[in-house]
């Protein structure tokens, strides 16, 4: 039901008959693949998953280090994020009442399947750890729960990169090497930033460092990803996804600058810095999300690289339409 032309002939066309050349390489300019049906819950879920997952790790390590306040605040953040996450996820399902079917099987070929288990496990363990941290109860259970929550939180922050990469959406699929790292960086930034906001300046040094490291990585990885995508990166340079991408970078850079400087002293500055970084990380996810839609809706992104591969294969004497693993891995 997406992508329908809503009864309007595509603009510009002057006739039903196509002329050689320009419009030849697609069917009435229509997308070859479908745009995802995912709603706005999904980028927020990516964001929350990253925040929650990395916050768990931060909390656990902070606890080990003895920064009790930072640990408590981070557990709280993790708990909040991981309470919202499944709600977002379930809400996006076409049949929310069947969300448990996610756990009908475990499939390594499906990042969503793997992710569902990770979310379930990390959610449970994080809840345990956070409750313990806040109320002091369930301490026996939480002894095992804390490291588990921390460990499971990490893949929760990164698997979403694989999730979208394992689609036919060019701007996602061709970024399959970078996306998990980009999302990891975003997760680090968010967790650091959230803790920076939530914790008094004095107790927040690790959080600030985390935010700064994450932000720098995020900026670098975004650049690397675009470089690798080449022409497919176009959606990051224009349209809604381009705007979001610019916002993400500006926000992250500004936040990073602030967190490295005034936020070390002023709680006010820390809150501003943290907010900027959180905004940056959210915008980054949104920009990736939106870029996917733009990339899916324009047939050129699907057809051109594929046609290029075929031409190359033909030139090198290969078989006609035969593709293969090498084709996309090249």
């Amino acid at each position: 039901m997406t992508g329908g032309s809503g009864g309007r002939p595509d603009g510009g066309r002057r006739s039903a008959t196509r002329e050689e050349g320009a419009t030849r390489r697609s069917y009435y300019g229509q997308p070859v693949i479908k745009q995802p049906v995912w709603a706005p819950e999904i980028p927020w879920y990516f964001f929350m998953g990253g925040l929650g997952g990395a916050s768990g790790g931060l909390a656990y390590l902070a606890g080990l280090r003895g920064s009790e306040l930072l640990a408590r605040r981070s557990w709280t953040i993790a708990l909040a994020a991981l309470t919202i996450s499944p709600v977002l996820l379930i809400k996006d399902l076409g049949r929310p009442e069947r969300f448990l079917n996610m756990l009908r099987m475990f499939k390594v070929t499906s990042p969503m399947s793997v992710g569902s288990w990770v979310l379930a496990a990390s959610g449970t363990t994080t809840a345990l750890a956070a409750l313990n941290s806040l109320t002091g109860r369930l301490s026996r259970l939480s002894r095992a729960g804390r490291p588990a929550a921390a460990a499971l939180g990490l893949p929760l922050a990164t698997y979403t990169g694989a999730l979208i990469a394992q689609t036919a959406v060019p701007v996602w699929h061709e970024a399959r090497r970078e996306l998990p790292a980009l999302f990891a960086a975003g997760a680090a930034t968010s967790a650091g930033a959230a803790a920076t906001v939530a914790t008094p300046v004095a107790d927040a040094a690790p959080a600030r460092r985390l935010a700064l490291l994450g932000a720098v990585a995020e900026l670098v990885l975004a650049r690397v990803m675009e470089r690798r995508l080449g022409e497919l990166a176009e959606p990051y340079h224009g349209g809604p996804s381009g705007a979001l991408s610019t916002a993400a970078r500006g926000s992250t850079a500004a936040g990073a600058l602030l967190v490295a400087t005034r936020a070390r002293r002023s709680r006010g500055a820390a809150i501003v810095a943290g907010s900027l970084l959180l905004t940056g990380a959210a915008c980054e996810r949104w920009s990736v999300f939106k870029a996917g839609f733009a990339s899916a809706s324009d047939p050129r992104y699907t057809i051109d690289p594929q046609r290029g591969r075929v031409t190359k294969r033909r030139a090198s004497g290969g078989a006609g339409v035969a593709a293969g693993e090498a084709a996309t891995d090249a």
Partner: peptide, 27 residues
């Protein structure tokens, strides 16, 4: 592509291994 079909489609999960490796590394 004239018919709206991809000229060289690939099973999008054929390189799931690459993705998992990337997830591993990122994690």
């Amino acid at each position: 592509e004239v018919y709206g079909l991809p000229p060289d489609p690939v099973d999008t999960t054929h390189d799931i291994g690459t993705s998992w490796k990337a997830v591993g590394a990122a994690t």
